[in-house]
Computed example of a mutant assay.
Amino acid sequence: MPEKKHKGTAKHLGSRLRQWRKTIPMKSYELAKLIKISQGSLSDIENEKSLPSADTIAKLYQFSNLNIVWLLTGKGPMTRDETGSAQEEGMVSSMLEQYGEDQKLREVIEKVVRIYKKGGLEKRAHLIGFVNGADPGE
């Protein structure tokens, strides 16, 4: 069966994904495990034999700093801004003020923010997984 050739914005998606992965640096099996797809599927995407599913793209967004617009179009920066927006910084400051009396909670909030911003992809993924699993809901 002939190899599919993608057109339009998806034309070089696989090579862009590989280019980004090598800047992390992360082995293909590590990224595949992180976003919960097989290493073969990731290889097919990076070798432009297939396109990622919407779920795979969502997981790349959730567990990494990859700029999905860049991945899909090649336009803009390769990664999202890691410094956080003013709105995010304001939310953290507000939380710290609100729970300022509780020193242990304040320390936990500061650690969570630090891990999320500086801990790398794997630590961020673990943090998100733990928080989602531990959340009792509202």
Rank of each mutant, 00 (worst) to 15 (best):
W70K: 08
S93D: 06
R16D: 06
E138V: 08
Y61W: 07
K33N: 11
L71C: 11
A86N: 12
G40C: 03
P2W: 00
E88I: 09
Y116G: 01
S94H: 09
Y61M: 05
G137E: 00
G76P: 11
F63R: 02
V69D: 14
L13D: 05
Q98C: 11
T23A: 11
D81N: 15
G137N: 01
E138T: 11
Q39A: 12
S94E: 09
K11P: 03
V92E: 04
A134S: 03
S53I: 02
V113Y: 12
P2R: 08
E88P: 01
E97Y: 12
K4S: 07
E82L: 14
K27G: 06
E48F: 04
Y29F: 11
P2H: 04
R80C: 07
K4A: 12
G76M: 09
R21T: 08
E101T: 14
P52G: 03
N67E: 05
M78G: 05
G137A: 04
L60F: 04
Y99K: 02
F63E: 00
A32C: 01
Q39C: 02
D44W: 03
G133P: 00
L42C: 02
Y99R: 00
I57N: 00
K33M: 10
P77F: 11
R124C: 08
M78V: 14
E110V: 04
P2M: 11
A54C: 06
M1D: 13
T73G: 00
R124V: 09
S41A: 15
R114I: 05
K111P: 05
R16S: 05
E138R: 12
A86R: 14
F63V: 00
E122C: 05
M91T: 07
L105D: 01
V113L: 10
T23K: 13
V92G: 00
A10R: 09
K59G: 02
D102Y: 07
E101M: 14
L31I: 06
L17P: 08
A125W: 04
P77E: 15
E89N: 13
G129S: 12
M26R: 12
T83Y: 09
L71M: 13
W70L: 10
K4T: 12
L72P: 00
L17E: 03
N67Q: 04
L13H: 07
Q87P: 03
A32E: 01
E30C: 08
Y99W: 13
S94I: 01
E122P: 02
K75W: 06
K111C: 02
L17Y: 07
Q103H: 10
Q39T: 14
P52H: 04
E88V: 09
L105M: 15
Y61F: 08
V92L: 15
V113H: 10
G74D: 05
I37H: 10
G90P: 02
F63Y: 13
K104L: 14
K7R: 15
I35N: 05
G14S: 09
A10T: 11
Y29P: 06
K117L: 06
G129M: 07
W70T: 08
A58S: 12
I24C: 03
K111T: 04
A10M: 14
E107V: 00
G137L: 03
L72C: 04
L71W: 08
R16P: 06
T79H: 14
Q98L: 15
E30S: 13
T83F: 10
T83L: 12
G137Q: 01
K33P: 01
E89Y: 11
R21E: 09
R80T: 11
V113F: 04
S50K: 15
